[in-house]
Nucleic acid binder design. Structure first.
Lengths: 250, 250
DNA sequence: ATTGATTTGTCCGTATGTATC
DNA sequence: AGATACATACGGACAAATCAA
């Protein structure tokens, strides 16, 4: 028999319910992936209606604290930047006024971070990783020769780069930034990108890593982002319609 | 007379509702502070019940997309990292198994980013900023001499550093990381911190900036984080109880 | 493969507290 | 102070999805 918690009577019930749910998770020692009590029982335990409980659950769900599966149950969530991606993407899209500025800041941050990581990447590089990067760059060059985009290869290149660093947080964060950039830039004019030049920049980065020259790799990465940053001002006079939804579940 | 949107019949209604609300905000050009239609009318427009609408609203409210004022109305809100900080902090705290790893990766990321920013900081430094930093370091040294913590000064030091860069995203992100680190470390043993050494590291950073030596400032910042990273392993054998709620509204 | 039990998803109706005018 | 509009919360009911026997 579960203990029934004192009813909540103060003002901010919604936040209080969220805290109590979190308290239940911690006190019971639930780990990510573990199932929570059913909604009806949890509502009974907390002494609130099921509707109020569900509203609090939806908030926790958007934060990634819990995950719900229709007809199955509610579970403790895994760490993820996904809620941040959706929120940040929307923030950028809401005000077209400040959108170019936000994109510029985003690219600026990526430039600082990825450039700074290149010496480490050069040190930690592995043989299979370099083969994979070589394949991706070759595909980029082939696409560029045919005048086609290579967004997926670009994304994968930057992700494969940082895998051997042993820092999942960095990988997740950079992936989140990429998703934001992708979602915002999706509806914008992409034809202004110089395909051959972009492919060549990735080639330069890879060559420097293979040659085990961290400083040169950092310089090449910096050049790569400088090119992207130069493209941003073209956004300012763009009237394209944009998606209301952020990036979807993967 | 508002147009009634086609009812949603597919699977993930919850996410679809959020997207439609966001779509309404973007399409109507609502800006932060503007009032949204009342719940009953919005539910009618979207062709859903008030209960489902409220659940979606609570999610958007959590992300800061909308703000509700009891008895008055619902308004477009200012986006903030804060709710996500609470969510991410909770998720780090919840799994004690992987917590030290998450903290280590977080500090590692901060070390890379903040070290890489130091040359820029040195370039962009302003006179009033340096005065502020000088005051903060002096307060740190005074506290250290008396054996007291200086968490607030530490936080403010790192925040003031990056203000002249003109990149709000970097400031918001670093503040979010600091909050997570602070919330996690709050319940842990803090007595192992070497106060005088930490204060001295901040002094070294400031001196290098004043001397306009970006490389030296970067080195000093790197040393600062190396000290913090060395402290992480002590977390692994810590059995302290943790709070269910993250940091509160400021 | 069908049935049955469990759980989340959605809806309706109603009552209450709250802020604005 | 009264009236009105609004968000908040509750309870019950049915639908849809999932899993296990």
């Amino acid at each position: 028999m579960e203990r029934i918690v004192d009813p909540i009577r103060s003002g901010d019930l919604h936040q209080a319910i969220q805290d109590r749910i979190k308290r239940v998770i911690i006190d019971h020692g639930y780990q990510p992936g573990d199932a929570l009590p059913a909604e009806t029982e949890l509502a009974r335990i907390l002494g609130i209606s099921r509707g109020s409980l569900r509203e609090a659950m939806k908030s926790l769900q958007t934060l990634g604290v819990v995950e719900t599966r229709h007809g199955f149950g509610t579970f403790v969530g895994q760490f993820s930047f996904e809620p941040m991606i959706n929120g940040l993407t929307f923030q950028i899209l809401v005000s077209r006024e400040t959108m170019p500025r936000a994109i510029r800041e985003l690219l600026d941050l990526r430039q600082v971070l990825e450039t700074a990581l290149m010496p480490r990447v050069t040190e930690a590089a592995t043989a299979p990783q370099l083969e994979q990067l070589e394949l991706l760059v070759a595909r980029m060059e082939a696409s560029a020769a045919r005048g086609r985009q290579f967004v997926d290869e670009d994304r994968e290149f930057h992700e494969v780069l940082y895998r051997p660093l042993g820092n999942d947080l960095i990988i997740q964060l950079l992936r989140a930034f990429w998703d934001i950039f992708s979602a915002v830039g999706q509806e914008s004019s992409r034809r202004t990108i110089l395909l051959g030049e972009t492919a060549g920049q990735h080639r330069d980065i890879l060559n420097s890593i293979v040659a085990h020259q961290g400083q040169a790799a950092a310089a090449a990465m910096s050049v790569h982002f400088a090119g992207a940053l130069a493209w941003v001002p073209l956004l300012e006079h763009d009237q394209s319609e944009t998606m209301a939804s952020g990036s979807r579940r993967r």
